[in-house]
Write a protein that binds this DNA or RNA. Structure first.
Length: 114
RNA sequence: GGAGUUGGCUGGACGGUCGCUGUUAUUUAUUUAGCAGAGGAAAGUCCGGGCUCCAUGGGCAGGAUGCCAGGUAACUCCUGGGAGACGUGAGUCUACGGAAAGUGCAACAGAAAAUAGACUACCAUUUUUUUGGAAAAGGUGAAAAGGUGUGGUAAGAGCACACCGCAUGAGUGGUAACAUUUAUGGCAAGGCAAACCCCAUCCGGAGCAAGACCAAAUAGGGGAACAUUUAAGUGAAGCCCACAUAUAGUUCCCGGGUAGGUUGCUAGAGAGAGAUGGCGACAUUUUUCCCAGAUGAAUGACCGUGCUUGACAGAACCCGGCUUAUAGGCCAACUCCUACC
RNA sequence: GGGCCGUUAGCUCAAUCAGGUAGAGCAGCAGACUCUUAAUCUGUUGGUUAUAGGUUCGAUUCCUAUACGGCCCA
């Protein structure tokens, strides 16, 4: 993997605001499996962006929530062909029990689909 | 060697590539380099503080603590001591002031449950069922007017005596809780205060989503000073009182604060090492160090080496405790059992 | 992050302040009425009082800890 600007994950590539979330939820392309449900939509920027939605109800422990976030981000960074999309990744209950590798594989499949 | 008690430490290591947060330097669209980057519980929010606002003061209500002495900024914490309970023992546990200030409670059972009384049974008397004596025995209950033995008696009884327990006085030791010795008393009427309460000591309330600053939008007022009248309303955030203040008048000023942003935000009752004092908690002092500061929320991903295959678990203003969760490993002191010398 | 509540029968709630056999309605089951069902009436079952300790003779109740659920504060 070569380091260039697109593969970094900085603040501009996060989805923080309520408007951006509802923007994606308005016209979603869904991709669902046991561990995650991923939603995406074209945006008007040059960057791909990522939002995370992991609620306390789904994942009880703070340690596990942080672990899942890291896995999702690192998987997101490795993708190169995501030019103008906003993504929202929502964790599901079965993701807690799985190790890092199986989660990465499922995420890679999601990103390829979209 | 086995079983155990107490106290403490540790909480995956190393190398490579890429990435995240803060910061310093260089350059200033920004790039590059260096440095730092979760815990012993960061948790529960159970206590105690710091800090911030509530204009200020007094009283009441309310709350907390509760053997004694000390430590601490403070404490529901810690240390040492006493008493009681448990354990063969090392040790462990204890909201452990007051019931002779007052109020209250004790279902069912039982004769009787709180100013005691007499069911069965006992003794005397006698008209054969009254009267008197006595409270030892039985049974009920969580609890029934000291316990055991001997004497004594009509039958009995601290009625008398011995030992034990209890109460009171005095002496001795101890800062004290308390311990102990001795004398006296024949023995009080009990339990519950994590029931109200009394006594002693302490406590104002709310919380960083506190508070301060910048400031789109929206509404139409807001603030300061002076003088005067009045005491209803308001300030108020437990209640009451004091206190202040409104409406209306004059003068002056321009702010207001939702979205969002900045700040509060980390150098501190700080950490490591040493010395001195103290049984100890801890204190004093010397020296070295700077050790997270995010805000949709940073510690990761991949590869390799290698073992014991890595428990509980993620800072959100900051400290001191307590409580709860916790794989494995290590250290020290002590106790009991067994075997050998 | 901080503040504050609750947990009792299958469900909705009492009893808790001030300790003494844990109760009501609905639901379930059985019976009566009816040709049958519904409605109605009668009877009845069902509880580790969230969990673990403590105080007490005795705890749903008082105290402490834990677990789960809920509410409020930009």
């Amino acid at each position: 993997m070569t380091p260039d600007n697109l593969s970094r994950f900085s603040k501009s590539m996060r989805i923080n605001k309520e408007e951006d979330f509802s923007f994606v939820f308005a016209q979603p392309n869904r991709s669902v499996d046991k561990f995650f449900s991923v939603i995406s939509r074209d945006n008007n920027l040059d960057l791909p962006r990522l939002g995370l939605s992991i609620s306390k109800k789904v994942v009880n422990l703070a340690v596990e929530r942080n672990r899942i976030k890291r896995v999702v981000r690192s998987a997101f960074i490795e993708q190169i062909n995501l030019k103008n999309h906003d993504f929202i990744v929502m964790a599901r209950r079965d993701a807690v029990k799985q190790g890092n590798k199986t989660l990465r594989n499922s995420l890679c499949n999601h990103f390829k689909k979209i």
